[in-house]
Design a protein around this nucleic acid. Structure first.
Lengths: 218, 218
DNA sequence: GTAACGAGTTAGATAAGACTAACATAATAA
DNA sequence: TTATTATGTTAGTCTTATCTAACTCGTTAC
């Protein structure tokens, strides 16, 4: 069994690998808000436990074992988020800090029961895939809304880097997963988009927002 | 804010005080499965934080502040147990170890939501009172089944020292909270009781069990 | 091709929470 | 009342996870 701290390092490595391809000590320490020597010494430790492949001055890689353990923590996190939203009535912008704590609970039964009550969901409230019991993730390919052309319609399917503020921004515009958005116009200079969906016939979204909205084209 | 470890000490002190009146370092260390010096040093620390009144070689007392903090952790524990049983379908014999972990989650909203979903329950699945948001506990006076006389009827209202094995023992006899039990006979030598309830017309209970069953006389 | 800077490591310190060994106090029994 | 036993404390060590300061490696700029 790993400590909570070790679990948090594994999770961070998993996310950073998915996001940036390669992870170095600097990225990792910034992501976790710690100093570099702390990260270095933890990498040595996780290296000894065969959870990462670590050699001085080289990029850090999760081993297969490390990937699996990270996935299983992420599974617990995402199941918890889904449970909080679907069964306990929380808003999708409020569940992260709670799930961040509950994910460390050591009780397969607890999470299996959530899974069952939720009907074995494939996605969390932000559209991120929930790993299965073996830690396997079925990656779905989404397009960014920012890649859609004028006239195209697409279903909002997931959000990237879901922060509190970003999700509140979407809430204020009634942008929920499942909504079908049509691109009315794109500002060539800054990529700002005017879109229509539901009752909203002309909503303007910044390119920053459009980059972070993942969609399935109609 | 206190650490998980400190929270566990506060909880232990609260339970031991309720149970034995006075707590000494030896009791505390045995209860928590640690060595005495570890308990001594933690008592000094909690003393500095004004959570306990501690003087060398004297019994340990929780301060009012310490009592309140302990109650609030117990509140989270018991709400969680109730939630696991009522909303997630766990057996009352399986919820303790999960609640032991979930109780340390720092999120008033999370527990308030449980409370609300449960209809603001006064008792946990074992009949123990759930402290209110101020940490106040409404103690209810129960009799032990072992104090009842032949011919008396009483409603099973709570259990003491609810361990896994004890609860399974009750499950096997369909003894749930709320069941009305009638005392058929008492063995004078060892206090063993023959009782009837529901469909069970003649069930024999050891005095150990009867001592731990708390009832309200009819 | 070397200087400078960013990234990474080593060494040593600290705090929390545990331990053991050794000593001290208090309560109990003879 | 003294000896014995149980309880409690002190001192010192260990591990985990963090830090700072100082040194090293590597890459980019000139």
């Amino acid at each position: 069994m790993n400590t909570h701290t070790e679990e948090n390092y594994l999770k961070a490595l998993f996310y950073l690998t998915a996001e940036r391809g390669e992870v170095n000590v600097n990225d990792l320490s910034k992501h976790l808000g710690i100093q570099m020597p702390t990260a270095t010494s933890m990498m040595k430790k996780l290296g000894e436990k065969k959870l990462v492949q670590y050699e001085s001055y080289k990029p850090i890689k999760l081993s297969d074992k490390g990937k699996k353990e990270a996935s299983l923590i992420i599974r617990k996190h995402r199941l918890t988020e889904m449970f909080l939203v679907e069964k306990m009535g929380f808003g999708w912008e409020n569940v992260h800090p709670i799930a961040e704590q509950v994910e460390h609970v050591d009780s397969p039964d607890f999470f299996d029961r959530m899974d069952e009550m939720l009907g074995f969901p494939k996605m969390d409230p932000h559209g991120s895939p929930i790993p299965d019991k073996d830690g396997k993730i079925s990656w779905q390919k989404f397009d960014k809304l920012s890649d859609c052309k004028v006239g195209e319609s697409a279903k909002l399917s997931a959000v990237m880097h879901s922060s509190d503020e970003f999700l509140k921004h979407l809430n204020a515009r009634e942008l929920q997963l499942g909504v079908v958005v049509k691109v009315i116009s794109v500002e060539p200079f800054d990529g700002m988009m005017v879109v229509s969906y539901g009752k909203r016939k002309s909503e303007t979204l910044s390119s920053i927002v459009c980059e972070r909205l993942l969609v399935q084209r109609a």
